[in-house]
Amino acid sequence: MLILLPPSEGKQPAENGAPFDAETLQFAELNPYRHQLLSALAEVSSSENALELLGVGKSLVAEVVRNIGLHTEPAAAAHTVYTGVLYEALGYERLDAEARRRADASILVISALWGAVGFADRIPAYRLSMSVNLPAIGKLASWWKPKLTPSLNARAGDELVIDCRSSTYAAAWVPPVETTVTVSVFQLRGGVRKVVSHFAKHTRGEFAAHLLTRKQEVRTAEELLVAARERWDAELVTGTAKKSHQLNIILPEDHAFRAVGS
């Protein structure tokens, strides 16, 4: 089981600790590309039009400035750096030891800066979206795709890939369609299925936590459907030779967030 997550746009900086060590990150073969991006990002973040180039507002100046010295910034495990609706719903800190072990082993975060990192990989907080067109690099999803594909295809092997990424990050790597299930979330509105972004993120986080805490690990698309139906109304759309399977989770009209920790 391999669970793919997008990063959060907002990130929680480590208060103290050693800087990141690229040699300790998963997929060490990506390190030359990571260092190339770190240099390009520092240069862009030092420029007068950094905010425009990175597609952020004035309120994020401090985060952009942090990009200049990421080699010396304190680093922390990715699961503490990435924050937001999905990560709060997943609740790594609320998982028991076995579920945390599973999370560290089975979750990959697809990143504009790092390419892909494991949940326990130590990284600094940074500001860079996969949608950015970085000078001298280009569109990051297109730039990363040929570099990520060999490494991530090898990592996926014949495991079931559970794809919870947003479309921006999904463009950076297309997993083997025959063993991949894309997770989509809808809410009924007037009897019609609608995509509601905050509900979708929250539910994907809950779903990931559900998979990590089950006694039986899922190995097939059909087993994934069974797992989803333990808590939600769900259906499986069988894939094709060119398209992965799709798991649709359908939330009721009166759906609301559950309290964190409930």
Rank of each mutant, 00 (worst) to 15 (best):
P6F: 03
G10H: 09
G10D: 02
Q12T: 13
G17T: 09
A18F: 13
P19M: 03
A22T: 12
E23T: 15
T24E: 14
Q26L: 11
F27H: 14
L30D: 00
N31D: 12
N31R: 13
P32H: 06
Y33G: 01
L37K: 07
L38T: 09
L41R: 07
V44W: 05
V44N: 02
E48Q: 14
E48G: 12
A50M: 10
G55V: 03
S59D: 13
A62Q: 12
E63R: 02
R66D: 03
A75N: 05
A78R: 07
H79G: 00
T83I: 14
L90M: 14
L90Y: 03
G91T: 06
G91M: 02
Y92K: 06
D96S: 09
A99E: 02
A105N: 11
I107D: 00
S111E: 05
L113I: 00
A116E: 04
V117Y: 09
R122F: 07
A125Y: 11
A125F: 09
Y126L: 02
L128N: 03
V132K: 00
V132Q: 01
N133T: 10
P135F: 04
I137W: 01
G138A: 00
A141H: 05
K145V: 04
K147A: 04
L148F: 08
P150G: 05
L152N: 08
G157A: 06
D158I: 08
I162M: 09
A170Q: 10
P176L: 10
T180D: 02
T180N: 08
L188Q: 14
V192M: 10
K194Q: 13
V196T: 11
H198I: 00
T203L: 06
L212G: 07
R219H: 15
R219N: 14
A221Y: 04
E222Y: 11
E223V: 04
V226N: 11
A228W: 00
A228C: 00
A228E: 01
R229H: 03
E230G: 09
W232L: 01
V237N: 12
V237K: 15
T238A: 11
T238N: 09
T240W: 13
A241P: 12
L251C: 06
E253T: 13
H255E: 05
